[in-house]
């Protein structure tokens, strides 16, 4: 399916949940955060669209906002699509895609770890690479390195061992 057809179908189905579309190297669609799961479920399950592989989940800090970025592929149809969601920095919450795609599971935890974006509905939203007591989220542009990172509060499982 051509990018313009995908755009048209999405606009017809979801109206104002589709904020804007663009044809870059990959076709890009900006989606309203709260309606993301609906749109993705439609993209996954509609015949002709069949976006069955959620290739990559990541985020970018644009200083005035966050953007979460989803790269979708269809193995059957061979087409690709990028979904982007603008997230406010004050209350960074996005619905989780883990119920729809297992591949989002670890990747959303990674984004939470590095950006502090919370994924609502994620079954196990914990830090992935850094320890729980790590101060701040390092891939945010306003993160500053400190020389005295606190190790005072051990992660949960360490406490459990002491009991």
């Amino acid at each position: 399916m051509k990018a313009t057809q995908i755009f048209q179908q999405l606009k017809l189905q979801f109206g104002d949940a589709i904020l804007s579309t663009a044809e870059d190297k990959w076709p890009v669609v900006y989606v309203k955060a709260e309606r993301l799961p609906e749109v993705v479920a439609h993209l996954r399950d509609s015949p002709g669209l069949d976006f069955d592989l959620l290739s990559s989940v990541t985020a970018v800090d644009y200083e005035d906002r966050f953007e979460t970025v989803y790269h979708l592929r269809s193995l059957k149809e061979g087409h690709t699509l990028v979904l982007k969601v603008r997230v406010s920095r004050d209350n960074p919450v996005v619905p989780s895609l883990t119920p729809l795609y297992q591949s989002a599971n670890l990747q959303e935890r990674e984004v939470y770890d590095f950006f502090g974006i919370r994924f609502e509905g994620h079954p196990n939203l914990k830090r992935l690479f850094l320890w729980e007591a790590f101060p701040g989220h390092p891939l945010r542009k306003d993160f500053r390195y400190t020389t005295s990172i606190s190790y005072a509060e051990p992660p949960e499982h360490e406490q459990a061992r002491e009991l």
Partner: peptide, 22 residues
Amino acid sequence: VNAGVTGPNLRASGVAYDVRKA
């Protein structure tokens, strides 16, 4: 496919997805 497995592990499950061809 749902878990985003790619490469030889995916193809050993019968899905012929290879970026070199796709």
